[in-house]
Design a protein around this nucleic acid. Structure first.
Lengths: 149, 149
DNA sequence: GTTGTTATTGAGAACGCATCTCATTATATA
DNA sequence: TATATAATGAGATGCGTTCTCAATAACAAC
């Protein structure tokens, strides 16, 4: 079983790029996020661990991590791009609560199949898709109903 | 039959906001776009018509146009937020060709229904959703296959 | 291990989209 | 017509992201 680190190292080797100590730390940190994260959060987490890595270096690592398949762009929350660790994880889509920011992940086989069908109908060859539903989570919807009383 | 202008005027009235000459021009310009547009394009089109309206005014009109249901946020192309005129138009989703940038619109009733079902399962109250599939359109895929030969 | 080539790094400047400030002006209502 | 208040324009500001460039580190060849 190949690890995420190995996958990234392999990717860099093929591209004739270097597996630097900074990149090792960035990968390690990104893997430590179980949910979504953005660049600032990676920067902060590294800093708290005593590893000061420049924001520029993190920003420069992002496209490599995307291309290597370790992470994917998830959602744009408050104008920040948010990513998620997708190594060895099943694809899923998102419900995003516009009030509290909570993200609920879901996977629906039927929706996936129907998307493939739509692509076939348009002779379109899909690479990736993103389905995001914005709305109110259970708790926030209750609160809104209370406020209106 | 209510027009887009009337709908916007009504919306502003309810909110006790003013239907200024600038807002009239902005609505008119936005309706003249048949495809997607961004703030800069609205600004430029107005300028070319001899109407100099401040970018700030256009930016300030956007949330009102969104809330009134005249436009919706579409896709993010090259970091600019892109909008589309949705007045009296049926909701649809997008296939985006990553090579030529072509956008194919589609609507699939079954996918819509399944999304509603997913929301119910999570006690989630949807406001809006966005489904974007990135890939290669028919022409571009043919070109890629040719290049590989 | 040493050397040479080349990618990478850090710090801050620069960039660009979007938002805010504030004095001036326009709108709607009485 | 008067009055209250929202809206406007121009430019400053904010903020996430990218760029610059000199110094450094990684890797391959020897």
């Amino acid at each position: 079983m190949i690890t995420a680190e190995q996958k990234f190292e392999e990717f860099l080797k093929i591209k004739e790029l270097k597996y630097t100590s900074e990149r090792k730390l960035i990968v390690k940190t990104i893997l430590s996020f179980h949910k979504h994260f953005n660049v600032e959060e990676v920067f902060e987490k590294l800093r708290k661990q005593g590893n000061h890595i420049s924001r520029a270096t993190i920003y420069r690592a992002i496209p490599l991590l995307l291309k290597s398949g370790l992470i994917s762009e998830a959602l744009r929350c408050q104008d920040k791009i948010s990513y998620e660790n997708i190594f060895n994880k099943k694809h899923h889509d998102h419900l995003l609560c516009v009030k509290c920011g909570k993200i609920i992940e879901f996977y629906n086989e039927k929706i996936e199949k129907l998307q493939e069908e739509v692509c076939r109908q348009h002779n379109f060859v899909p690479i990736e898709h993103r389905l995001g539903i914005k709305g109110y989570c259970e708790d926030c919807y209750k609160k809104i109903k209370e406020e209106k009383k």
